[in-house]
Design a binder for these strands. Structure first.
Lengths: 233, 233
DNA sequence: CGAAATGATGAATTGTGTTCATTAAGAGGT
DNA sequence: ACCTCTTAATGAACACAATTCATCATTTCG
């Protein structure tokens, strides 16, 4: 018989269940407090385990964060392909990608923050699953651009990497500004504006159309000249 | 007479000198190790003071970081106006702003990293001097755009804030990608490409020019019609 | 039902930022 | 030159959070 401090009852769950519990708790706490201000003790408490137990399932705090973000990101991207496959036209497809990204940030600002601030900046980021997912995700956008180029709708003399930087950089910069209280955040209008800006920059210059018009009119003038029997100008 | 542990000799310097020493040491250590991996003890050692002394001049570690970045950023922006004032033309001025930003990141990647990761993301960022400096800095770029609009060179139906997000978002996204080993980093070529992309998107659509051309040609046709005494088409 | 294996615990450890009572250096007056 | 008085600098102690690990509880299996 012991009289030491009451030891809490030990619950044994399946590994999967414990991992799920801890990750759910961690996601909530991280969402509320951010990364640095979220003590492991809070996460442990919410997951109904003791601090030390977390280390049985996760290497360290950062690993826990990575897994949480990974889990969320993966689930989120799961149905992108399907949604995208139902949309036709370069402009519409591009708009969807941009709009979806904006919506995601709008829906989960805290998790996006964590991802941008603590995952992207880590030394090991390029070895993360999130990095791969993200790469795969932006590649889809570039594929849309490529298709537009192949169809002759878009300029073919641009660096695709820079187009990607422009689109996603713009979205993220815009969001940061919003998150610190600058302006409004309207995914629909913003998506329209971005597509407009980007496509206007990418579309084959209207000069071609203008020249085309001039060509045709020049021919018309020739016809008129022959009709009138004398030079027009 | 004491036999306790030898107390290091106390050097008394002017307040300014001490602050400068500590900030120089902090900048170096932060540059080398980043923020989180830079212990105060390292900074103290390099500044030839003891850890506790730093807190006589700076509230805490974060405050020290803020002051260091502030100092650097301020010095860097000091001569922007002067350099910019010697450049004419919307395209050239815009290109200079973009190129300068790229160069800065190229020259001080570590400090830029610190700024993006630890200053921008802090709750208090919008009350920082760096925030004000940055605002003032990006405003110059927008002024260039505004001048272009006023001169009739650029579209007037764009959200300036979005243009700013596009330019700086692009630069920073591009840089992040570079810093984690993706592609090359050539400020000159990149600046050209960005200006090209942005301006092509901002320039008044050639359609207008085309319509203008059509208008003038239509009048020419009318003249020819009256000249020929019968309809051309 | 007993013993081995495994999971969970929480007290202890470690590492780091921060505080503060103590001490030394310099300034100013006599 | 000597004696305060003020203030800068010190470094030991503190606080707090991540991480470890010896111990104990629970389950599994023979």
């Amino acid at each position: 018989m012991k009289n030491g401090p009451a030891r809490r009852q030990v619950f044994r769950l399946s590994r999967e269940r414990r991992v799920a519990d801890i990750m759910a708790a961690a996601r909530d706490v991280f969402r509320e407090k951010g990364y640095e201000d979220a003590p492991m003790s809070d996460i442990a408490e919410r997951a109904n385990v003791v601090e030390g137990s977390i280390y049985r399932y996760f290497e360290n705090k950062r690993d826990l964060l990575v897994k949480v973000i990974e889990d969320w990101y993966e689930a989120m991207l799961a149905d992108y392909d399907q949604q995208l496959s139902g949309i036709r036209g370069t402009r519409n497809r591009l708009r969807f990608m941009i709009w979806r990204h904006l919506m995601t940030i709008h829906e989960e600002p805290a998790l996006c923050d964590l991802m941008f601030q603590f995952l992207r900046t880590g030394r090991d980021y390029s070895h993360t699953t999130v990095y791969e997912l993200n790469k795969q995700y932006t590649r889809r956008t570039l594929d849309i651009i490529k298709e537009g180029i192949a169809a002759g709708e878009l300029r073919n003399d641009v660096t695709l990497r820079l187009v990607r930087d422009m689109i996603y950089g713009c979205i993220e910069h815009h969001t940061w500004a919003y998150l610190r209280g600058e302006g409004q955040f309207d995914p629909d209008t913003t998506a329209d504006s971005i597509v407009d800006l980007v496509l206007s920059g990418l579309q084959i210059r209207r000069t071609a159309q203008g020249l085309d018009l001039a060509d045709r009119l020049e021919k018309a003038v020739e016809r008129l000249e022959s009709l009138a029997g004398k030079p027009a100008f």
